[in-house]
């Protein structure tokens, strides 16, 4: 009897935590621009290195890494977003994110120039993204987060790393 009661409480708690986390974002830098990524989709951040190149793939696929025995593809985010390749520095990181791909969760790594911080962006501080003018494809932008330092581009990571879109690019490359 008691069990059910406490269970209900837990659910409420979970909701709170989830709501909190949904407002939390990881911000990072790519070149001069700051981007934000929903914290819920971030699994871990690792040092850049050990990337094995995969031949005959488009430029934004940097290769694969060994993540504790699993093979995880690594995406060059700068290339994917703005078609310019990031150079590797001491602060370059791979952010491991979990993306939904056809209903299946899949881990992928994205290369970022530097990880900044975790910030709260309440819904009221999110502005819609510009429909044109931004260097990033409009459909990759979930919104613009207003922070003290200025705006960050909030990425729709599922769309950025969507398998179908990526595979389609890949095919075009293979066919052409």
């Amino acid at each position: 009897m008691n069990g059910r009661h406490s269970l209900a409480l837990t659910v409420v708690d979970d909701d709170d935590v989830a709501a909190d986390q949904q407002q939390q974002y990881l911000t990072f830098r790519l070149g001069e621009e700051s981007y934000a990524l929903g914290l819920l989709s971030v699994k871990e951040i690792i040092e850049y290195g050990g990337v094995t190149q995969v031949p005959m793939m488009p430029g934004f696929v940097r290769g694969v890494i060994n993540l504790r025995g699993r093979v995880v593809p690594v995406i060059d985010l700068a290339n994917r977003l703005r078609a310019e390749s990031a150079s590797v520095t001491r602060r370059t990181c791979i952010v491991i994110v979990e993306v939904a791909n056809d209903g299946e969760a899949q881990d992928m790594g994205i290369i970022v120039d530097a990880v900044s911080q975790v910030v709260d962006i309440p819904p009221q501080s999110v502005e819609p993204g510009p429909s044109f003018g931004a260097k990033v494809r409009a459909d990759f932008i979930a919104g613009m987060g207003k922070l003290d330092e200025g705006f960050v581009i909030m990425l729709d990571i599922d769309r950025v790393l969507a398998g179908e879109d990526m595979a389609a690019v890949n095919d075009m490359k293979a066919a052409g």
Partner: peptide
């Protein structure tokens, strides 16, 4: 053999990866 995943499904000449 570890599959390379969906991203590489169209890749020819490579059947998988190994650690």
């Amino acid at each position: 053999i570890r599959p390379l995943g969906k991203l590489f499904s169209a890749l020819r000449g490579v059947s998988g990866s190994t650690i």
